[in-house]
Measured scan of single mutants.
Amino acid sequence: PDDLEKRARELLKRGKNPDEIREYLRNAGYDQSQAEEALKRAL
């Protein structure tokens, strides 16, 4: 898994919901489609 996916998994483990994770990834400078893909793979 790429770093983005790892980060998404990490956040899920900490109890973040998908919307929070999307926002976090966007704020971290990733584009929307990258964030969506990583989140899908992590779920």
Rank of each mutant, 00 (worst) to 15 (best):
R9Y: 07
L11F: 05
E36I: 05
A35V: 15
A35W: 07
A42L: 14
G29W: 01
E5W: 15
R22Y: 14
Q32C: 10
K13I: 09
N17K: 12
E10T: 05
L39H: 00
D19T: 08
K16D: 05
L39C: 03
E10A: 09
L12H: 05
E36P: 01
E5L: 15
P1S: 12
K6E: 12
R22Q: 05
Q32N: 11
L39S: 01
N17W: 05
D2A: 12
P18T: 06
Q34P: 03
P18H: 09
A38K: 01
R7M: 15
A28Y: 07
P18Q: 08
Q32K: 10
R41A: 10
L12Q: 02
K16A: 13
N17G: 10
L43G: 04
I21K: 00
G29M: 02
R7H: 11
P1M: 15
L4T: 04
R41E: 04
K16P: 01
Y24P: 00
K40T: 11
L43P: 01
S33I: 14
L43Y: 07
I21G: 00
D31H: 07
A8S: 03
D31M: 06
E23F: 05
R26H: 08
R7I: 15
L25K: 00
L4G: 07
L39W: 01
G29V: 01
D31W: 03
R26M: 15
K16Y: 15
A38H: 02
E20G: 02
I21V: 13
R26Y: 09
S33F: 14
P1I: 15
L25N: 00
R22T: 07
L25H: 01
N27T: 09
R26G: 04
A35C: 10
D31V: 05
P1C: 13
E37I: 09
L11S: 01
D19K: 07
A28S: 08
K6N: 11
L43R: 05
E20S: 04
A8I: 15
Y30C: 09
Y24S: 06
E5K: 07
K40A: 13
A28N: 08
L25P: 00
K13A: 14
K16I: 11
E37M: 07
L11W: 09
K40Y: 13
K6Q: 13
Q34G: 04
Y24T: 08
A28H: 10
P18D: 04
L39Y: 03
S33N: 13
P1E: 12
N17Q: 10
D3A: 12
D31L: 08
R7P: 02
A28I: 10
Y30K: 02
S33L: 14
N17Y: 06
R41W: 06
P1Q: 12
A35L: 14
A42V: 14
E10D: 11
E10Q: 08
I21H: 00
E20T: 04
R41D: 04
L43K: 04
A38L: 08
R26V: 14
A42K: 01
S33K: 14
K40G: 08
K16R: 09
D19L: 06
S33R: 13
A38M: 06
L12E: 01
K40P: 01
D2I: 12
D19G: 06
R7W: 15
L25G: 00
D19I: 06
K6Y: 12
L11K: 01
Q32A: 14
L43M: 13
I21P: 00
E5A: 14
P1G: 11
N27F: 08
D31T: 15
D3K: 07
E23S: 06
A35G: 03
N17V: 06
K40V: 11
L25I: 04
A8Q: 00
E37W: 06
L25Q: 00
L25E: 00
L39E: 00
P18K: 07
L11T: 00
P1Y: 13
S33V: 14
R9G: 05
A28T: 04
A8G: 01
G29E: 01
R7Y: 15
D31N: 13
P18W: 09
D3L: 09
R14P: 00
E20C: 06
A35M: 09
E5D: 10
R26C: 08
Q32D: 14
Y30L: 09
D3P: 08
Q34T: 11
E10Y: 05
R22A: 07
G29F: 02
A42P: 01
E23T: 06
L11N: 01
E36R: 03
Y30F: 12
E20Q: 11
E23I: 08
R26N: 05
D19M: 08
A42E: 01
P1K: 11
R9I: 09
R7L: 15
R9Q: 07
